[in-house]
Every structure is written in structure tokens, then in C-alpha cells.
């Protein structure tokens, strides 16, 4: 059994070590490829394919699955910003967001600033859906808010508007949070500006007082602490050009359906 008697026997350490060396050679090749511009562009073809395929099988009206009350879990964990430290936000939070407004402008006929109370008194919709994080975890929660299409109709979005950019009140390491979606997702029946979670006003960790729910997408598309929605012709002109904070900061896909 001892190593000295039978030198042929691979020890676990040697096995792990040689595996590490072998895969190290393979991996350094992969890492070199990973930073090659042409190769990265090739890999990103998959995002276009994913979007084209999913949009084809979804149509514009297929809904994310909805659940019943007893499916609701212990929590909807807060991720990304858990508590904004921006001075303006802290001031708003201290007064219970009584002065919070949502501005919708850009390519719209009537740019409008909505008071939070106004939004909460609009026709509300409630859905129990699953929140899927890009990291791999999921949580089921009951979201209440106003249908986004309802707000868009109030300001009359122009035909030239192809995307909505969501400007948020929280700043992370690389800058202010933002996200963008196209008009197909914006007008989806489940897409809403939510102000309540599990029958309570939104907690700060989940985006108080107003956040986007864009079911059929991963969590990072669901912008929290939304202050302004801007209708634009091209999201690539906003901020870093990737269409979202994590798209710019970490290179996540703009299309987050998978």
C-alpha cells in the first residue's frame, strides 16, 4: 500500500497535479482565446441566436409561468445593490419616498413626471412569478404594480422609439445602475413597474419604491430604484453602450432570456 513499494500507483496528489498541468495547458490556450477580439465576437453570435430562437417560440404574448400563494418562498433575496447609499436616495428613503417621482421622457409625445402616489393609485396588476438570477438561484414572489404599457400609453410613445432606458437611483462601483429593454418586452402583458412584494410595499433591498418586472428575463434586467424611463431609438447611445450596468461593467448579454 505504501508509495515506496509500488511506485507505479498514482497517488491522488500526483493525479490531481498532473490533471492540473494538463488542463493548465489547455486552459491557458482558452484564456488566450478568451481575450481575443475576433473569438469573443464569434462567441457572442450565440446571444443573437438565443434571442432569435426564443423570440420565435415565444411570440410577443407568451407569458412567464405564474404560481399560487403557497409556492411563495422564504424570501426574494436582494442582490446587486442591497441598500443604495446615494445621498438623494437616502433623503427620499428617510421620508418614506413621499416625494419620489417617475419621469417618462425621450421619444414620447407628452413627457410626464408621475408622483409615486399617482402610480400606486393606477389600475394595479398582481402576479406570482419566479425571479431567476444569472448566478443560478431562483425565488418566487408576488409582485404588484402598474402595467408598463399603461404608463407608455399615457405619455404616447413615438413610433421612432425602439427601446426604453431605465435610469436608477443607485450607484455601484462602475457607475449608476441602468437597464434597457425593447418595445416588445416593454409592452408584454406581464411587464410592470412594481411597488409591492408579497403584499407589502417594496423593501429597499428589492428596489423600493419602484422597480421594473420584465418576466422572461434574468434578474439583472429588472432595474430597481427606477427614477426615469427614457424612450430612445438606440440603447447603444446611453451610458457605456452595452444597454445596462452589468452589460457595461461585466460583459453580460443584453438579451437575458437564458
Amino acid at each position: 500500500m505504501s508509495d515506496t513499494k509500488s511506485p507505479i500507483i498514482l497517488t491522488r496528489r500526483a493525479l490531481v497535479g498532473s490533471l492540473a498541468v494538463a488542463s493548465g495547458g489547455l486552459l491557458s490556450g482558452c484564456d488566450a482565446l478568451n481575450s481575443n477580439r475576433g473569438w469573443r465576437d464569434t462567441l457572442l453570435l450565440a446571444e443573437k441566436g438565443n434571442m432569435a430562437l426564443q423570440r420565435t417560440i415565444q411570440g410577443s404574448r407568451r407569458r412567464a409561468r405564474e404560481y399560487s400563494e403557497r409556492d411563495i418562498g422564504r424570501s426574494v433575496p436582494a442582490n446587486g445593490t442591497r441598500a443604495p447609499t446615494d445621498a438623494d436616495y437616502l433623503k427620499q428613503a428617510a421620508t418614506g419616498f413621499s416625494d419620489w417621482t417617475l419621469t417618462i421622457d425621450g421619444l414620447v409625445e407628452t413627457p410626464t413626471r408621475f408622483a409615486l402616489g399617482q402610480i400606486r393609485s393606477m389600475p394595479k396588476q398582481t402576479q406570482i412569478t419566479r425571479h431567476d438570477c444569472v448566478e443560478g438561484w431562483s425565488a418566487i414572489g408576488k409582485w404588484t404594480g402598474v402595467n408598463l404599457a399603461h404608463l407608455l400609453d399615457k405619455v404616447q410613445v413615438k413610433d421612432s422609439a425602439r427601446y426604453l432606458v431605465f435610469h436608477c437611483a443607485d450607484t455601484l462601483r462602475a457607475g449608476p445602475y441602468y437597464e434597457s429593454i425593447d418595445m416588445e418586452d416593454a409592452r408584454h402583458p406581464q411587464t410592470m413597474m412594481a411597488w409591492a412584494l408579497n403584499d407589502e410595499l417594496l423593501p429597499i433591498g428589492n428596489g423600493a419604491p419602484l422597480r421594473l418586472r420584465v418576466e422572461r428575463h434574468l434578474g439583472y434586467k429588472h432595474a430597481k430604484y427606477v427614477r426615469r424611463i427614457e424612450a430612445v431609438a438606440d440603447y447603444r447611445l446611453a451610458y457605456g453602450g452595452g444597454g445596462g450596468y452589468w452589460e457595461d461593467a461585466a460583459g453580460y448579454e443584453w438579451y437575458a432570456g437564458i
Binding site: 484564456d31 450565440a46 444569472v134 460583459g251
Partner: peptide
């Protein structure tokens, strides 16, 4: 890739 990078790993994975 070798280092932690969720975005890049997803690009490789989906391609």
C-alpha cells in the same frame, strides 16, 4: 475561463 468571470463563461457555454 480560469478566473472567476460569469459573463465570459456564459458566452463560451452558449456558443
Amino acid at each position: 475561463p480560469t478566473d472567476y468571470n460569469l459573463a465570459d463563461a456564459r458566452h463560451w457555454h452558449f456558443f
